[in-house]
């Protein structure tokens, strides 16, 4: 048989058009009676909630690490500084207060300054004799010398004030170049030998 004749035969061939109405109906009812459409709704919600939940978790994590955790560290640094007896003495003697705390590279920097003079760009003259040498340093101040403020470096892991530096001009920590500060070791009285400690 030639190619074209076979094509003609195929095109004219009567093919069976048989239906099984019972099977058609039974299958339909069975498919519709399945839990598919209910399951799909639950899946719809899962598809919506999954990215929303993921976004909420992401925002919470980012928020925690960028907002909440820094705030916790700042509060912790303040607490460590205020609990240090030497810092308390400085605050009392020079009428200083913690005016700012800054976190940088895992370290906390606490600015001690006269509360009213903070950010004014001016220092104050000490009106009285300095009470004694600054902790860890031989006395190097004299009456009338400018004592504007201090920057304390707080070790959050050791939970102590580790270093301190004097500043000539009280400005906001964000405007200050901390690298230019000459930090000295801060020796708390807690670390003093028993015979050097204040008998009271």
């Amino acid at each position: 048989m030639k190619h074209e004749k076979l094509i003609q035969k195929l095109e004219n061939l009567e093919t069976p058009e048989i239906e099984l109405p019972g099977h058609k109906q039974a299958l339909k009812m069975t498919l519709l009676g399945s839990g598919h459409f209910r399951e799909r709704t639950i899946m719809d919600w899962a598809k919506i909630l999954a990215p929303v939940s993921a976004a909420v978790v992401l925002i919470a994590v980012v928020g925690f690490f960028n907002v909440i955790q820094p705030q916790l560290h700042i509060a912790q640094a303040k607490g460590i500084a205020l609990n240090d007896p030497q810092v308390q003495e400085l605050i009392e003697d020079y009428e200083l207060a913690i005016t700012e705390v800054k976190l940088r590279d895992g370290e906390a920097f606490v600015l001690l300054a006269p509360e009213l003079e903070a950010n004014s760009g001016r220092g104050i003259f000490s009106e009285s004799e300095p009470l004694g040498p600054i902790p860890g340093e031989a006395g190097n101040t004299s009456p009338g010398e400018l004592v504007p403020g201090y920057i304390l470096k707080v070790d959050l892991l050791e939970k102590k004030v580790s270093e301190f530096g004097e500043i000539d001009e009280v400005i906001a920590l964000k405007d200050m170049n901390i690298e230019d500060i000459d930090f000295a070791k801060f020796e708390s009285s807690e670390g003093a030998a028993p015979d050097e400690a204040d008998p009271e």
Binding site: K9, E14, I18, L20, P21, G22, Q25, A26
Partner: peptide
């Protein structure tokens, strides 16, 4: 999966198979 209305599949199949046999040319090809 529960069908709502049961049916007699055997009878339906037998009847359909008889119809199919009528298409001899088709079955041959």
């Amino acid at each position: 999966f529960e069908p709502i209305s049961p049916y007699d599949p055997e009878s339906e199949l037998i009847e359909a198979q008889e119809k199919l046999k009528q298409y001899q040319d088709f079955l041959e090809i």
